[in-house]
Design a protein around this nucleic acid. Structure first.
Length: 552
RNA sequence: GCGCGCGUAGCUCAGUGGAUAGAGCGUUGGCCUCCGGAGCCAAAGGUCGAAGGUUCGAAUCCUUCCGCGCGUGCCA
């Protein structure tokens, strides 16, 4: 059930009235809470949207539509305002029916609204198993996972995948660094690689490998070569990847499959992909290297696939990987990448076009940089200075709920300043607790009302509604549109923003209206309203993988 | 230089053609015999970076300019 049925009936009625007045077909009726509550319960700008095609004054059209709506029982007042808005005030009966709709829909409320439903392959995080996940990965993970949940909720079929960059020189350097730490451990001469990896985690990996292999590699690691180097790189990488997966799991990030870059090379798919490009005339040799002619497909310039020394580039593997993904029978590919990869978009689209796919099937969602703020100051992060904050440290510091909420509370294309003091705060200032508290408050009220509450009964309309009740109901009715918008725009932050709005309306309602101990018809209505709010809060938080505690 | 992103309240940010531009934090002032005050109510605070243009209507679309970030490797 994507929309409560009584608001749909109303929307259809407005559409029909507009059709009668203007003759237009297929009218999309936007029906939202107005900017100010004293404009009514719901408002629509439909007359203004139709004015141009109808070549008529929007206020005139609005007036005629309004006349038709006035006859309806559920509408107690209609007025035309401003440039042509139609403002509606709805009956208590309509409010009661609408709340009952939401309660009846339960978990399905707002779900399955996507048209058409697509099969989507969503790639995010994509770690290098040469080091721990950092803050940037955390943002990609929180965004990607929330987006996946939202897309599924509105009816798409989603496969979540992470591409593991476990191939190439970086793995060798990593292996050499681990081997050097191992050498130090067993008293051999350590030969750390230049520009190598450092940090305590390298020593940890070395220690775990020492437990596994003992002193077997004594005399072979100063420096390691061949199979020995390969062993340190591969085994070390496997340990790192396991750690990475554990951190993601702890952060409630779901990934269906980890796709190994090495596999692509081992199975000859990279080679095959490159050859296909050559045969298609999309790759040419120049100055000893093999170039992908991506500029033919809108990229700024051509890109190297195979270097003069015969080694393939990262892009060559991506040809194979993206062609592979595009061939899996999906309608859409979504890549979540960091800000430093935005130059990559044109390349990826070009390689899809060159391999005979529609480049439009790929969407690349770029995540802007994250910086951490503490005591009013930005914490500078640098890999070299060793001040990089890992995702695991962040989880230890502020917890899963705060991390998940804060990282998706802002649009993905704006740089994010994560205020650690605020995130740690277990108080009113913290938006996570604000929303969670609203949920706990609903649960508490319902527990108190439990004896009297029978929401299965038809919800009876109260004599009149408090303004805070009207606002809470119209906000609840806006949920399907909000989550559909979040999905369509790939914008999980809209869900977070919606939940804050809903929590605010709930708190305001709580302070103005008592639920327990009121006249029976009032109590029944308010119990239903509280139930609906609880369910939407819980469902919305679940889309962000944030818990909805019953008590705090 | 070129490409992409961003410039909105003191700070962090919502708002991709509709009404008097919003929220959180911060500031100021109110509200606990009452379902949890982790809350509520109110006030102050804005030339939406600048200038043109399109439109009945522009923070939103177009053009130019200014500022910030990132990219612009035979790195990944």
């Amino acid at each position: 059930m994507s929309e409560a049925s009584h608001i749909r009936i109303l929307r259809d009625a407005i559409g029909e009235a507009a059709r009668q007045v203007t003759g237009a077909e297929d009218i999309r009726v936007e029906l939202t809470p107005p900017a100010s509550a004293d404009h009514g319960d719901l408002a629509t700008p439909v007359a203004m949207t139709l004015a141009k095609a109808a070549r008529r004054n929007p206020r005139e059209i609005a007036g005629e539509i309004a006349d038709r709506l006035r006859e309806r029982e559920d509408v107690i007042d209609v007025e035309v305002a401003g440039p042509g808005f139609i403002n509606l005030r709805l009956s208590p009966r309509w409010f009661a029916d609408s709340v009952a709709d939401v309660v009846a829909a339960g978990e399905a409320y707002g779900a399955d609204g996507a048209v058409p439903a697509e099969r989507i392959l969503l790639e995010y995080v994509s770690p290098n198993p040469t080091g721990p996940l950092h803050v940037g990965h955390a943002r990609q993970a929180a965004y990607g996972d929330a987006l996946g949940r939202i897309l599924e909720f509105v009816g798409h079929t989603v496969t979540r995948e992470a591409y593991v960059n476990d191939y190439g020189r970086q793995m060798e350097v990593f292996g050499a660094a681990v081997a050097a730490a191992y050498a130090e451990l067993i008293g051999d001469e350590p030969v750390p690689p230049e520009d190598g990896y450092s940090g305590a985690y390298i020593a940890e990996v070395a220690a775990r490998l020492h437990q596994e292999a003992g002193d077997r590699y004594r005399g072979q690691v100063s420096p390691p070569t061949g199979d020995t180097l390969d062993w340190f790189a591969t085994r070390g990488g496997a340990l790192m990847l396991a750690d990475i997966q554990a951190v993601l799991e702890r952060a409630r990030v779901r990934i269906d499959s980890y796709f190994s870059e090495t596999t692509l090379h081992r199975e000859g798919l990279v080679q095959k992909g490159v050859e296909a490009l050559v045969q298609g005339g999309h790759a040419v040799e120049r100055e000893g290297a093999l170039w992908f002619r991506s500029s033919e497909f809108g990229d700024e310039k051509d890109r190297v696939l195979v270097r003069a020394n015969g080694v393939t580039t990262y892009l060559a593997a991506d040809v194979a990987y993206h062609a592979n993904k595009a061939d899996r029978g999906v309608d859409r590919l979504i890549d979540v990448l960091g800000a430093d990869h935005h130059g990559y978009i044109a390349r990826l689209k070009a390689l899809l076009a060159a391999t005979g796919h529609d480049p439009e099937m790929l969407e690349v969602m770029i995540q802007q940089l994250v910086s951490l703020q503490e005591r009013g100051e930005s914490k500078r992060m640098s890999k070299r200075a060793g001040t990089l904050v890992t995702m695991e440290e962040l989880l230890d510091d502020i917890g899963v709920d705060a991390l998940r909420f804060f990282l998706v509370d802002r649009s993905h294309d704006t740089a994010l300043d994560l205020d650690l003091d605020l995130a740690r705060e277990q108080s009113q200032e913290n938006p996570v607790y604000y929303v969670q508290y609203a949920h706990a408050r609903c649960v508490n009220i319902l527990a108190k009302a439990a004896a009297a509450a029978d929401v299965a009964d038809p919800v009876t309309p109260p004599g009149d509604l408090d303004p805070s009740e009207r606002e809470l109901v119209t906000t609840l009715l806006a949920w399907p549109a909000a989550v559909a918008e979040a999905a369509a725009r790939r914008s999980p932050h809209r869900v977070a923003a919606y939940l804050r709005d809903l929590a605010r309306d709930l708190h305001a309602f709580y302070h103005r209206c008592r639920v327990v101990g009121e006249a029976p018809e009032v109590q029944v209505f308010r119990v239903a309203l509280t139930t609906a709010t609880r369910d939407v809060l819980k469902g919305g938080l679940a889309l962000l993988a944030v818990t909805a505690p019953d008590r705090m």
